[in-house]
Write a protein that binds this DNA or RNA. Structure first.
Lengths: 159, 159
DNA sequence: TAAGATTGACGGTTCAATCTTG
DNA sequence: CAAGATTGAACCGTCAATCTTA
């Protein structure tokens, strides 16, 4: 059928380099996530998901965002963000208000306690990202990673 | 104490490149994991964790491994592997036997149905890794990633 | 007493309803 | 009826006991 070459190329098992590249991505991402998550939990009582929400709110104008926006920004499902927001609201790190312009909508707003927690956690968190991820890599490697992410972002250029 | 430079260096916020490199790692790893997991579940009824266990067993001599070994190889906790093995055993993809040499130990053994499932899934899975991860990257980028993983593997060379 | 393995309770994510408003 | 948001059930991973054997 003429796809023989492509088929035989795709059917052969992964090479050692391919496997190493793939498994390394899965492994190191999971490992770093777990390490940072544990430290954040121990020192600030925040999960990485909690932290992401607080940071996004801290960086948003007025320190407030629509729930749907916030879900997209933190790459979570709506329902997941709902329960996460429940927990954060119970701890008074955020609060919720109905949006003025759309009766359906809700906005999450960072409280001053939430901002304080976020600022404190951010310093420590950034330092950990440095120590465990940025520092072991030289600037060229960092650039290489950025290039790789960009290539993966491109919508499957099957050219 | 001479650590002033290092301290001021560590305290400044992350640069755009640093943030992009870090968030890209977290994002793309999670995204790829989820995509492959969903396809594997839809087409073969396997989670990524299920699949990892089956592959490790398939590649092991005699298609059998000690539970602790298997947990280390798949980078899971012992207890997590226990319940995962329960599910796989219920589906008759693996079975368990006491080890001959150590009365405490248990070995997981791939059944023929498990091997068949694994072989089928592996073809599709490898093709998906190719399509979503390997193909968008050129060989140089793949090598760059391997280098980066190696640098991260090194035990915090704070030299 | 320590090590291999399992169990049960708990936290968090996902999926399919559900409720409300545009 | 479609969209924003929430709720409840099922599922999976983690942590602290527990049981058995070296």
């Amino acid at each position: 059928v003429g796809s023989d070459d492509a088929a035989s190329d795709s059917d052969r098992p992964l090479t050692a380099v391919e496997l190493t590249a793939w498994r390394g991505l899965m492994y190191h991402a999971a490992r770093l996530r777990r390490r940072l998550d544990q430290i954040l939990a121990a020192r600030h009582g925040l999960s990485l998901a909690d932290y992401d929400v607080l940071v996004r709110l801290a960086d948003a104008p007025g320190q407030r965002m629509r729930m749907a926006e916030l879900a997209d920004a933190t790459r979570q499902s709506r329902s997941s963000l709902s329960s996460l927001a429940d927990r954060l609201e119970r701890r008074e790190l955020i609060r919720r208000e109905p949006t003025p312009e759309d009766g359906r909508g809700a906005r999450a707003i960072l409280t001053s306690a939430g901002l304080q927690t976020c600022v404190n956690a951010r310093e420590a968190h950034d330092a950990n990202i440095r120590a465990f991820f940025l520092e072991p890599l030289d600037p060229d490697q960092l650039g290489d990673l950025v290039d790789a992410w960009r290539a993966l972002d491109a919508p499957t250029t099957t050219a």
